[in-house]
């Protein structure tokens, strides 16, 4: 009975989060397509930025959560942290893929090429490869303590590698526009206020989306565990 109540509570709080995310997402869409003025130089294609940057932010944030959960798992050895790392890595890879897809769509009309071997593009691609390998590792090991420990180690090592990858490809070559949102002149000086507000709404919408997806995915993984447990119980009792 108590379990039923708690599962209902989870679903109702998820419901609240769902409507909040949907509302913010709608506001972001209206802001992007109706409210914000078109950029002067790049034209309509510049609006892809309001998806590109939030996806990138979300991917990095998700990988950071993988890192933190992996450390906490190795420290506390609780299944809970393993679930968080796994779910966050999946979401991170999806949004990292979206960054790699929206990037060329934006680059083609603006730079004239789909892809350049620029620092940020290269490091995002390498990051994507690392976490795809992480998910492959998870897929190839059987569920249990070994899988959790191994993937935690890769989750930690992968994130530690990010600054090194960043500097190596930065010195290698770079074309990407200098960061405009957080520039040396101060926060948001490189952009029109309306564009900044739109980007802010979009970032908020994507962050909420992460929380929503994460909640759903974690609940799914817990259900899987529960089913496994029940299966084993029935198998041995009969």
């Amino acid at each position: 009975m108590a379990e039923e109540n708690s599962s209902k509570e989870i679903s109702s709080s998820q419901g609240g989060l769902f409507w909040l995310t949907a509302g913010t997402m709608l506001a972001a869409l209206i802001a992007i397509y109706v409210w914000v003025p078109t950029e002067k130089n790049e034209g309509i294609i510049q609006r892809v930025m309001y998806f590109h940057i939030p996806c990138a932010w979300l991917a990095f944030f998700a990988f950071f959560i993988v890192f933190v959960s992996s450390i906490l798992f190795l420290w506390k050895k609780e299944r809970e942290w393993d679930i968080y790392a796994h779910c966050s890595a999946e979401i991170g890879v999806i949004f990292c893929s979206l960054v790699l897809i929206t990037g060329p769509i934006w680059a083609r009309p603006v730079w004239g090429v789909w892809w350049v071997w620029d620092a940020r593009l290269t490091s995002t691609l390498v990051l994507w490869l690392i976490y795809v390998a992480y998910l492959m590792l998870r897929g190839q090991t059987e569920a249990g303590s070994i899988r959790a420990r191994y993937s935690a180690v890769v989750g930690i090592v992968g994130f530690l590698d990010i600054p090194l990858i960043h500097f190596s490809v930065l010195w290698w070559r770079t074309f990407h526009p200098k960061p405009k949102v957080i520039s040396s002149e101060g926060l948001g000086k490189g952009m029109d206020p309306s564009m900044l507000i739109t980007l802010g709404i979009s970032l908020a919408a994507f962050t909420l989306l992460y929380c929503l997806l994460m909640g759903r995915r974690v609940a799914l993984e817990r259900t899987k565990d529960e089913i496994d447990r029940l299966k084993r119980e029935k198998l041995y009792s009969s």
């Binding site: 492959m136 090991t141 190596s168």
Partner: peptide, 20 residues
């Protein structure tokens, strides 16, 4: 070494990490 597909998994894990 403890994975079934160790021959494939080692390069897949190793090469992206040693890009720097």
């Amino acid at each position: 070494a403890n994975l079934k597909t160790r021959d494939i998994m080692l390069p897949i894990l190793l090469y992206p990490l040693m890009v720097p």
